[in-house]
Design a protein around this nucleic acid. Structure first.
Length: 465
RNA sequence: GCCGGGGUGGCCGAGCGGCCUAAGGCGACGGGCUUGAGACCCGUUGCCCCAUUAGGGGCGCGCGGGUUCGAAUCCCGCCCCCGGCGCCA
């Protein structure tokens, strides 16, 4: 009754499924393999069912056997039948394992709205705000806007803003990635005082926003078992993103999305309980193994950060609407934070296996002269729920199908801080604190309120007063 | 971590090698009765395979193995819950 949409298409129209896979720039021959394994799996299952049926009939008659001789013959027959069943079952187990592996490597279907191609095919569909554009970046700014047929108002500035990494270590002197590198490795960081306050203020702001919209606040497990983790991420993520705890069947979450998706692991949800909207808060741990030397400086791309995440379980027919809703929530927050952004409809080749459609929210970074990803909002349809065994029961008719899951960043702390350091920077290096955050800093005596001021160099980085 | 008790269908709860084809109850869903609801009566109520009109079959008692012709029932490993001890923020 409940059939995973990808499996349904595999059986009904494998050629169409191939086109979906091809749109992701993956090898569609995996579909042929999945198809033949599925057919073979079903054939074997039918065969074994028939053999078992025979065996069951014999077994039931043993107890009623009228004579010792009849009983002996029945036992003999049952035993020989068992041998055949055993052999077939071994074969089934083999095929079944292979089939599961191949099915699990199938990506989600691609939504019709998704532009087809590699990452260069991703299209900005909306711009907001008035970016500060340094004269030296004017040309490349225009290219990032006009190429897509947009006309965006900007504020031209004649001084070049310092990059967030320089702000951190040289201007504000509130971060130390050198020492962190020495004691933990590259992509780790220490941040201090005002930036820590800012980190928490951002999280509080996101929590405040989402809970006021009816999202349930969740502090989830930071580690999950393999079988759960493999339901929420694709195989590539294990290699490039996920840390494992040595000697335990536990993996550190790369986002609270993983734990939130797992909240209904193996459960059924009645349709009248949906949608279930969650706001998760957690640290996120990422290996960033596939990142090479990209964004090595500063705290844009790091092994650990805090994030408030939106996660929704929805009825299938509502997931597209909710996808728009969660990206809108993110837009609202970045508008209130006063960070100029664009929304990008991510191309099929860059989606990631779980997502049928994905929007990124990218903030203009004045010191880099580029829009950079701050938020990623995905509609995973039934890809995760199939793997996690999370189904929906429709009251009307009591029919079962897989729920849809959606996720979106609300605020990722360190990354948003980098955007603030560049966008709220003044020529003398002062950073203005976005007004919306001030009420979250107000209760704390030592928290900054309006500005973060540059600090004069001291001989010893460890003495920060 | 150690000792003891326990995990049965959506929920409660019987069963402790073969009439378990998992009793009984509650709930839910469908139908009957009713102007409507309730009460009442009947049916359905997990997963998979084949056939899809009716149906046929297999599997399923925390998870995974094992013993047996036959396992919810016996054995082993793991997970989780409750109580006690220990340890700890």
């Amino acid at each position: 009754m409940a059939v995973w949409s990808v499996l349904a298409l595999l059986r009904e129209n494998p050629e169409e499924l191939k086109r979906h896979v091809a749109r992701r720039l993956m090898d569609p021959s995996i579909v042929d393999l999945a198809y033949s394994l599925d057919v073979e799996w079903r054939r074997l299952q039918t065969e074994i069912n028939e053999l078992r049926h025979k065996h069951n009939l014999i077994t039931r008659s043993v107890a009623k056997a009228s004579s010792g001789e009849e009983r002996r013959l029945l036992l003999e027959e049952a035993k020989s039948l068992l041998k055949v069943i055993e052999e077939r079952e071994a074969r089934l187990a083999e095929v079944e394992a292979k089939r599961a592996e191949v099915l699990n490597s199938l990506p989600n279907l691609v939504d019709d709205d998704v532009p087809v191609g590699d990452e260069s095919a991703s299209v900005p569909i909306e711009f907001w705000g008035i970016p500060k554009v340094w004269v030296g970046y004017l040309e490349q700014f225009r290219d990032q806007v006009e190429r897509y047929g947009f006309n965006v108002k900007y504020e031209l500035i004649d001084w070049k803003p310092r990059g967030h990494a320089d702000m951190l270590e040289e201007v504000l002197r509130l971060g130390d990635t050198v020492k962190a590198g020495e004691v933990a490795g590259s992509r780790f960081y220490y941040i201090f005082d005002d930036l820590v306050w800012l980190d928490f203020a951002l999280l509080l702001y996101a929590i405040d926003k989402l809970t006021s919209k009816g999202y349930t606040l969740v502090l989830p497990p930071y580690m999950l078992r393999y079988r759960v983790m493999s339901g929420v991420v694709d195989l590539g993520a294990f290699k490039d993103a996920i840390y494992k705890v040595e000697g335990e069947d536990l993996y550190l979450i790369a986002t609270s999305e993983h734990s939130l998706a797992a909240l209904y692991y193996g459960e059924e949800i009645y349709d009248d309980e949906l949608p279930i909207k969650l706001a998760g808060i957690s640290p996120c741990f990422r290996k960033e193994a596939g990142a090479g030397s990209r964004d090595l400086k500063g705290i844009f791309r790091v092994h650990q950060f805090h994030k408030v995440e939106q996660f929704v379980f929805s009825k299938p027919e509502e997931s597209r609407r909710i996808h728009e809703e969660i990206i809108s929530n993110a837009k609202e927050m970045f508008q209130e934070l006063g960070l100029p952004y664009r929304i990008v409809n991510i191309a099929s080749g860059d989606l990631g296996a779980p997502a049928a459609k994905k929007y990124d929210l990218e903030v203009w970074m004045p010191a880099q002269g580029k829009y950079r990803e701050m938020v990623s909002a995905s509609n995973c349809t039934d890809w995760q729920s199939y793997r996690l065994g999370i189904r929906m029961i429709r009251r009307k008719g009591m029919t079962r199908e897989y729920v849809h899951t959606l996720n979106s960043t609300a605020i990722a702390s360190t990354r948003t801080i980098t955007a603030i350091l560049e966008n709220y920077q003044e020529p003398d290096g002062t950073v203005v604190i976005p007004k919306i955050l001030r009420k979250y800093l107000e209760p704390f005596e030592k928290a900054p309120k309006e500005y973060i001021k540059p600090r004069t160099p001291t001989r010893n980085m460890n003495k920060r007063e």
